[in-house]
């Protein structure tokens, strides 16, 4: 890796100040499972990393007033193992358990998964179904971004310069959900296509991953869901195959949560 400097702020305010002063070559480091390989491959030039691990509030996970408030630094392993998450949003816990390996889940964070803004981010379809809100703090204060407006393109999000995602807020809604991740390997693999479905009071919401430039809410009908996607050809699958799998997985998901 090219040399860089490393700082560890103790508070969100301190991190925001460092970030907005830092400019383009300053990046936030959460779990590092995406960032460090990018630096290793020299895809990004970095002068300074701001480590977020020591900011206590970012690892909190609480249920308050019917909202599951998940700190952006909560790891996938914590999501998978937390009884609160399993009780209130089993869909999210299920998606976390399907990701990577124990060693990677111990590092990777929910905030990193979302801010990296991969079209295949496994936590995104469940959170789209559950109508999560993302709380960001920047130099001019905090704001809440509905997850439907968060992803703006592959690797791009609605976060502005100097803004830090601090919390993912998931309303605790009664209902049943399922996340179907289709990948050749059961561990350490990205989704060829991922489909989440959540049904509450008879109404089903469906969202897909790896089938469009961003994770996406789609109509709760197999044909319409497939029509709404705009997948690409890559080494994992052809666009045509992905579209067909969206149709199949949407049908299955709707059958699993009738």
């Amino acid at each position: 890796m090219r040399p860089f400097d490393y700082v560890e702020p103790r508070s969100v305010d301190e991190a925001v100040a460092l970030l907005s002063r830092g400019g383009e070559r300053t990046r936030l480091l959460a779990g590092g499972t995406d960032l460090i390989p990018r630096l290793r491959r020299r895809q990004w030039r970095i002068d300074r990393l701001i480590g977020l691990r020591r900011i206590d509030g970012l690892r909190d996970l609480t249920l308050e007033d019917g909202v599951l408030a998940i700190g952006a630094g909560v790891t996938l392993e914590e999501l998978a193992a937390s009884t609160t998450v399993s009780d209130v949003c089993p869909l999210l816990a299920e998606a976390a358990r399907l990701m990577a390996s124990p060693q990677v889940r111990a590092l990777a964070t929910i905030g990193g998964n979302l801010c990296h803004a991969s079209p295949a981010a496994d936590l995104a379809p469940p959170l789209l179904c559950l109508n999560a809100t993302l709380r960001a703090i920047g130099p001019s204060g905090g704001r809440d971004i509905p997850i439907g407006e968060f992803f703006t393109g592959p690797g791009r999000s609605a976060l502005r310069d100097g803004e830090l995602l601090v919390q993912v807020r998931v309303p605790a809604v009664e209902g049943r959900g399922v996340y179907l991740k289709f990948s050749p390997r059961r561990a350490m693999d990205l989704a060829v296509v991922g489909v989440a479905c959540f049904r509450s009071h008879g109404v089903a919401t469906v969202a897909v991953g790896a089938a469009a430039p961003t994770p996406l809410r789609v109509p709760a009908s197999p044909d319409e869901a497939a029509a709404r996607c705009s997948p690409i050809d890559d080494l994992r699958a052809s666009a045509e195959y992905r579209r067909e799998m969206v149709r199949v997985l949407t049908r299955r998901a709707l059958e699993i949560v009738p």
Binding site: E8, L29, L49, A106
Partner: peptide, 12 residues
């Protein structure tokens, strides 16, 4: 906890 030492900075 098992973690990958290639993804963690020494300073962390």
């Amino acid at each position: 906890e098992p973690q990958l030492s290639c993804l963690v900075l020494g300073l962390e």
